[in-house]
Amino acid sequence: MPVQVSTVVDAEESQYQLVFRMDNVKSIYHLLKSINFQPRATFFATDSGLKVSVESAKCCQANAFIQTEIFQEYTLQPTDESVSFSLDLNVLLECLDIFGDANSNSSPTALMLRYQGYGHPIKLLLEEEDVVTECSIRTLEVEELANFDFTSDDVINKIILKSEPLKEIFNAIEPSTDIVEFNLYSNEPIVKLRTVGYMGEVEIDISKDSDMIELFQCESDSTSKYKYCHFKKALKALAISQKVSIRTDDGGLLCMQFMIKNDCGHICFIEFHCLPVVDDD
């Protein structure tokens, strides 16, 4: 017999390392969907919330930060070790959208997730209008993720932009493009985006007094190149974001932070790191 989401006894919960509930699964569905460029996702639960990391070939990494405010209930049992698990993100997303209302305005789906600890599956309970779905997703061994340590000392350039115009710029990039060159200058034009592909080259300049720029800090001119196939993994997160902060450090490591406001007005962040392409010459 299915258990009603709202009637699970508290005593039962103490055996779980992590339990959270939310009234509307949409709040995290779109967030997780936007970082779904690799099937394997790693979840880290902390007192401040959840961090979900997806990594591709140690070259680029996306982290979604979901603060506890988003959840109606968030219980993390105090343990010595950190609570983390990996799972197949595609499977999780199919489960979260089992009633198909992620893209419609029908009644919200409530979610409860429980995790008993290392070696145990993730138990999901989804409920919508008396229909209940129980899922048990097997967890995978947590693999070590690349550490893109982005200390503020190394940051040389920082720019905060509105997402809307940036989406148009990035969508205009030819899909056959191989390399995206990202230039930041202290003088006009402050941002120069250059793409090289089979179809030719495209240059996009953004000037200092453009409306889309909210903050600009440039300590020294920088040029770094990124693989378009890595770079475009961030576009889904950009599509649902309101603002973007782009930072580069002296090694050319790119860090994009997307500020995302969900339907309930909560703010979440997705962080995207991408390693530069090392020039041959």
């Binding site: 299915p2 489960c95 089992i98 993730i122 229909v131 209940v132 779905t133 997703i137």
Partner: peptide, 12 residues
């Protein structure tokens, strides 16, 4: 599946 078990219950 290998990934887990999934069940939806409709009642009444």
């Amino acid at each position: 599946t290998d990934a887990g078990t999934f069940a939806t219950f409709f009642q009444h």
